[in-house]
């Protein structure tokens, strides 16, 4: 222990030791069966991530009828590609146009559309993004390398209830000859959150 007088009198035990303590006690009580930690997390480490959302976006770019369904009933249209479930049961896809740029935030916690984007990056969950994106979206987007022209409206979506949002980015110019699969490879996680343009 240091004698630094700024230290709190009760510095918490190291977080790894607190996790191990709770894991052991809950295991003793039969609440963490063998394989439980893997079962909870494996899908998000191996299968579920932004590539899912990228396929939805690419399909919308090449298939106008799919795009229309996606904007009308996002949850059903995303389910057509096999994606849905926890944190994706009630989806809203918001479309970027020449006049409107959309960006998604959760100011209260870190709600995020897991089935199409996976688990959120740390910056999405940290206080600066959550505090500032509703207050000064254009400035923060510029700081993050996403310049939105002054004549383009910014629409911020705060995921404060049950809907989860996915941004449909504009299809980049000069991509007419690309296949749906090639287009999907152009689509980034950040573009689907709305903090980047393609």
């Amino acid at each position: 222990m240091t004698s630094d007088h700024h230290h709190h009198p009760a510095e918490p035990a190291p977080v790894e030791r607190r996790v191990a303590a709770l894991e052991q006690l809950l295991t003793d009580r039969g609440l963490v069966p063998p394989g439980f930690v893997d079962a909870i997390n494996r899908a998000y480490e191996q299968d579920i991530g932004p590539r899912n959302g990228a396929k939805v976006v690419a399909r919308a770019w090449v298939d106008p009828e799919y795009r229309q369904r996606l904007l009308t009933d996002s949850t059903a249209a995303i389910a057509e590609l096999g994606y849905g479930g926890h944190e994706g049961d009630h989806m809203q896809v918001v479309e970027n146009t020449a006049d409107v740029h959309n960006v998604v935030v959760c100011t209260l916690c870190s709600c995020y559309p897991w089935p199409v984007l996976g688990l959120p990056p740390a910056w999405y969950k940290d206080p600066p993004y959550r505090a500032r994106m509703v207050r000064e979206p254009r400035a923060l987007l510029a700081e993050m390398g996403c310049d939105v022209q002054d004549d383009v409206e910014i629409a911020v979506w705060d995921s404060s209830a049950e809907q989860r949002y996915l941004v449909l980015p504009q299809r980049p110019p000069g991509t007419d000859g690309l296949s749906e699969q090639e287009l999907a490879e152009l689509v980034t996680r950040d573009a689907m959150i709305g903090v980047a343009r393609l």
Partner: peptide, 20 residues
């Protein structure tokens, strides 16, 4: 936790190739 619009926060720190 109700952070929307609160002042005093700095830059958003993005980690490249962040692991899950």
């Amino acid at each position: 936790h109700d952070l929307g619009g609160r002042a005093g926060f700095g830059a958003v720190e993005v980690e490249a190739d962040e692991p899950v």
